[in-house]
Amino acid sequence: MGIFDHFMNLRAVYIHLGWFQISITNLLVIIGMLVLFGLALFLPFPGNKKEGQK
């Protein structure tokens, strides 16, 4: 619990570029969703061997 308590009580760190501001946490979540989207498009689906064509 100690590590998590410490981690959860830290202040959010923000990236600030002109008018644009985002917390590192939110940025990581968005990057994670984009990675998930990319993986979903390109990773082969198990069992998808065109069984209908046999």
């Binding site: 989207f37 979903a40 498009l41 990773l43 689906f45 069992g47 998808n48 065109k50």
Partner: peptide, 11 residues
């Protein structure tokens, strides 16, 4: 249909 066999359709 066959095209549903993709990860993108699971979300």
């Amino acid at each position: 249909p066959a095209y549903v066999a993709s990860w993108i359709y699971l979300f």
